[in-house]
């Protein structure tokens, strides 16, 4: 099977920032992403669980983008402007995708 090199960017961020992040990604020309619910975790601010959160303010989501390597800098610049001051994690990994024209 023919595969193509791509970058997988995972941005875990507060749910209240989701709309702002996806708007920034759209503005930067990113055409696709997937938003996943986050059940819980632990980090510098301590342990956290979705259970027992009374509003969206306490929740987190993960935005996953698969893009061509040459578009990575533009995406990270746009994302960083939104997430810079907020709780969250941004990670980039190499991956392979089928059907390169979709990215």
């Amino acid at each position: 099977m023919l595969t193509h090199k791509a970058k997988r960017v995972e941005i875990t961020i507060e749910a209240v920032m989701e709309g702002r992040l996806t708007a920034a990604l759209t503005k930067a020309g990113v055409t696709g992403w997937t938003v996943l619910p986050v059940l819980g975790g632990s980090g510098r601010s301590g342990a956290w669980s979705r259970e027992g959160q009374v509003s969206r303010a306490g929740g987190m989501v993960q935005v996953v983008c698969l893009i061509r390597p040459e578009r990575l800098d533009g995406l990270l610049t746009a994302a960083f402007a939104v997430v810079e001051r907020h709780i969250g994690v941004v990670s980039v990994t190499d991956c392979d995708v089928l059907r390169a024209e979709r990215f």
């Binding site: 209240v16 920032m17 601010s45 009374v54 509003s55 303010a57 306490g58 907020h86």
Partner: peptide
Amino acid sequence: YIAVPAAMRVAMPEANPSIYLTLSL
């Protein structure tokens, strides 16, 4: 503990949510 925490997370992300949520809720 619903509307204001959401606004604070956007406008004042450096403020500690554990403090204000624990106090009010």
